[in-house]
Design a protein around this nucleic acid. Structure first.
Lengths: 130, 130
DNA sequence: GTACGTGCAAACGTTTTGCAGCGGG
DNA sequence: CCCGCTGCAAAACGTTTGCACGTAC
């Protein structure tokens, strides 16, 4: 974890190390700032919400995290850096990955003049079955 | 326009009529609340920002508008109700439609248990060509 | 020792809400 | 006339920032 921070050009401070362990210690995860803050408190890691925000954004800029925009008014961060897409269940706010493997998006138009495609995002919005 | 509001079950008040004309009078459009408010002021339509928000949300619930989530921290509304997708140029905030016709998304996994697919959204994020 | 990180509180931009008054049916 | 809509101001929400202090190196 220490290495991972150093490699990203980030000083391995107590807070960054602790948050990195929470984020990258298990499998892939999706978190909001508020969720991560709650989790840190539960684990008795002393860290302020401001630092959570700073850290998430630093991790994102360093390429350790990606932001997922599914929800206006809340930022989700995703530890999965592989090519993949998302289910989003509006009713519960549940965000789940699915692999890009097996998914084909064909017929995307050319990018407008002066621009190029950065990335194609597929969001599958879910509702309760009925 | 009056009919359109009545059909949607909304009383055709001065403000709603005026905003409906701005939104639906020309071709399809994308607006934020702040943009629509600025435009109304320019046209000397007396309407408060709170009413803009209320109206946009009422129109959305009535199915006259769709919300497009591309930007955490800002809501975009889209008058295009057809099946289509979006280019989003992060640098400028420009949001553009492209038609779903010609686009194929294949291999979307089954929805998780208890849920069903509401809608598949494709967002093509653009950066400046280089 | 110095540059950078952290915590707190305050500021920010967007959106929602409570309430008194207006207006459409 | 009545219910629902509007405007205003204030509050709420997630997020960012300024600044004094602390800490990694």
């Amino acid at each position: 974890m220490l290495e991972r921070l150093r490699d990203a050009g980030l000083r391995p401070t107590r807070q960054r190390l602790a948050l990195a362990r929470l984020l990258f210690g298990g499998g892939n995860r999706h978190v909001t700032a508020e969720q991560l803050h709650a989790e840190a408190r539960r684990e008795e890691i002393p860290v302020s919400l401001a630092t959570i925000y700073n850290t998430l954004n630093q991790f994102r800029k360093a390429g350790l995290l990606r932001e997922v925009v599914v929800d206006s008014g809340r930022s989700w961060f995703d530890t999965n850096l592989e090519n993949h897409h998302h289910f989003f269940h509006e009713a519960t706010g549940a965000l789940t990955d699915f692999e890009a493997e097996g998914l084909a998006v064909e017929g995307v138009p050319r990018a407008p003049a002066g621009t190029e495609i950065d990335r194609v995002e597929v969001i599958v919005r879910l509702r309760d079955a009925g």
